[in-house]
Design a binder for these strands. Structure first.
Lengths: 118, 118
DNA sequence: TTGCATTAGATGCATCTGCATGTACTGTCT
DNA sequence: AGACAGTACATGCAGATGCATCTAATGCAA
């Protein structure tokens, strides 16, 4: 019970802070960043379903997230030749650059909020 | 970093489970429940702003949450005579009943997910 | 091969969300 | 009293979300 409210408060604090700073400094949200991070750490390409799990999203949210990021030129979709129902998602140069810029911001916020939050 | 992903996963797990069970069994979401709980534990009435803090919501979300719950007959709004900008919110009989029904569900889910999640 | 259950991802729809702003009221300062 | 900054809540709007559903592709079985 107290655990739950602490979890709720902690999540709201960290998520909110991340969302605000990432949005202001780089124009992306937490979900976008998580996706960028997942894509940057797997080499080359990555199934859409992997992003779903990495960012704790629902299937439809992931689908639209990818669409949004594609529109903004951060990722590209590619046919998955192993299973033609699926798609591969990969970072563009712009996506890789944005991730490199946003990563320090992300880490700084975590440091600050998780560190101070105790 | 690992802390953050654990927090994210944990929150998604608990919040998702609560949302699903509360929705299916009682037709309310997590935010509605948190509001009911806050209103049931303060005696009689409660300022709108209190709900904002209790459920970690934004101001506008709280305003609409109250409107929704009022529409569903769970709460009532009353003028706040101390400060006529503010409003008091109070449970109706139906709201109190629903809280009594939903509380065991809520506790059971927490027990289950927080207990097993370690 | 044909049929059927299953899976990956896309999408329509209703709903929810935050942001910015609007309205009404308060308290303070002059 | 009058002006004005600040606070409590409501709301228009654009964008995000989940749910249910759709389409296309897979794999298994008859």
């Amino acid at each position: 019970m107290r655990q739950w409210h602490e979890l709720l408060a902690r999540h709201a604090a960290v998520f909110g802070a991340l969302e605000a700073k990432l949005q202001k400094r780089h124009g992306i949200g937490v979900n976008e960043f998580e996706a960028l991070e997942r894509l940057a750490t797997c080499e080359y390409k990555c199934r859409a379903a992997d992003l779903t799990q990495a960012a704790q999203l629902s299937q439809s949210t992931t689908s639209r997230l990818i669409a949004r990021m594609e529109r903004e030129g951060l990722v590209e979709r590619a046919m998955c030749d192993m299973d033609r129902r699926g798609i591969f998602v990969m970072l563009t140069e712009a996506g890789r650059r944005l991730y490199a810029q946003a990563k320090p911001t992300h880490r700084a916020v975590l440091e600050e909020v998780l560190g101070a939050g105790d």
